[in-house]
């Protein structure tokens, strides 16, 4: 486990990134925190779970979150491409349900480059696209030291321009920033 500071976070701008794992929504909330503009969160209409704005509260103001409910993934990708190309939203979060092929992934990257905006795909495990700039795996960890903690293990498992690594982090809701935790026992 590396003790180096987080290298690829905050996410590289004007690119599309991917995150998988059980703590992927928390990763997206951390990525959205502190951005100046609104956040567009795309989630297909038929998915049963709902995003809870009160749960987002420690990370960002829920009033700045726009929720879009496309009927299927084709619509979702079209909306994400439109929003990335437009550049008026700070972050586009797209929850995908089937693997992206190379063309779809590449189109998202081109749109992000054209609009200078950042995209983040929440993917199920092993559904990554080759075109992604970075791919992360976010797992929640039990924190024996703190109550109400958001301790997570973030692994970067793909990085197009840098090295991979893993960090234990938690979100400090008071200071409103991400804190690195040195791994215990080392």
């Amino acid at each position: 486990m590396s003790h180096t500071p987080l290298t690829a976070f905050p996410l590289r701008p004007a690119r599309v990134h991917e995150v998988c794992g059980p703590a992927a929504p928390a990763f997206a909330a951390c990525a959205a925190a502190g951005r100046p503009g609104p956040v567009l969160w795309l989630r297909e209409a038929w998915l049963p779970e709902t995003l809870n704005p009160l749960g987002l509260l420690p990370f960002l103001d829920p009033a700045g979150v726009l929720l879009a409910r496309p009927a299927n993934q084709i619509d979702g990708l079209a909306v994400a491409e439109e929003a990335l190309k437009d550049g008026s939203v700070a972050l586009v979060v797209l929850e995908i349900t089937r693997p992206l092929d190379l063309r779809e992934g590449r189109r998202l990257q081109l749109a992000a480059g054209a609009g200078r905006s950042t995209g983040l795909c929440l993917i199920p495990e092993r559904m990554g696209s080759t075109a992604a700039e970075t791919r992360w795996r976010a797992m929640p960890l039990f924190d024996p030291a703190r109550e109400d903690s958001t301790l997570m293990r973030w692994e970067i498992i793909k990085n197009k321009s840098g090295t991979i690594g893993a960090w234990n982090v938690y979100w400090d809701a008071q200071a409103h920033r991400l804190d690195l935790v040195p791994p215990a026992g080392k």
Partner: peptide, 27 residues
Amino acid sequence: TGPDRLADLITRIGTRIGLDNILRFLP
């Protein structure tokens, strides 16, 4: 031009998925 650009984007997205499918949270 921030709010205007966002409203334009919502309109453009709305022509694809319907304006009722772009939502925001209210307390």
